[in-house]
Amino acid sequence: MSCLRTLFLAPAALVMVVLILAPLGVVVCYSFLTRGAYGGVEWLATLDNYRRLLDPLYLEIFLRSVAVAGTTTALCLILAFPLAWFLSRAGRRKHLYLQLVLLPFWTSFLVRLYAWMFLLRDTGLINTILLAAGWIREPLPLLYNHVAVVLGLVYGYLPFAVLPLYATLERLDRTLLEAAADLGARPLGTLRHVILPLAAPGIRAAALLVFIPCLGTYLVPDLLGGSKTILVGTLIQNQFTTARDWPFGAAVSLTLMVFTVVAVLIWLRRGGDKLL
């Protein structure tokens, strides 16, 4: 009966409205207001915040964020695919390996980033070993550059890429691979024409799961990049802390969100509405 159905849907609807739509409404509202002198907002409507976004400075930041997120996504896919393939064929140890992939989620991301800093520093583990082995004379500058940032991002988001790929590859019918070989396809041909097309839904899901959070990242560029680059996430964070310009921060956030939603819709549409 439909009133029972409404009753059961009510909690979820409440969560949606209170925890998601209401705060979103506040952000939308703020983005059209003027900043208070010391933070907060003044109730004076303006389009200034959005006009400022057209400044090349902010467009550049935006493009750079897209580039970083794109690079990270590509690297994650390249690394995750063989790993997911191996996992899907692992036989009895499969669940053990899956647990190992998921293990990092049991610890805080921040703690793991600090661990990477300990590894990469001049006096960190990697440099200490290399120096002791005599392979280098001076410590390598592994930290506080773009490579460290991408490394941190790929490390953090790799499990998000592995899991959907694994899910898709695990369901792959092995006889299809035999059929391809039977018809004369060498391993590379089988990969290109059978495995990759059939894994496409998993690849698309993995790409989304990495790209979207990467776009808004600010911890990794701060900690591993030495705060030397500013990405969209850092820009937004700055508006709510040092710059105390909440309306502008809200405008940037909203723009980022709209861009992401549009990009995702286009991406999904190309995939023919099949997500998994």
Binding site: T175, L176, E178, A181, A185, V194, P197, L198
Partner: peptide, 18 residues
Amino acid sequence: PYERPVSTVFQSYALFPH
């Protein structure tokens, strides 16, 4: 298998769904 001039019709047909 891809070097052998034999071809197989599988019990489940193994048609490529895509």
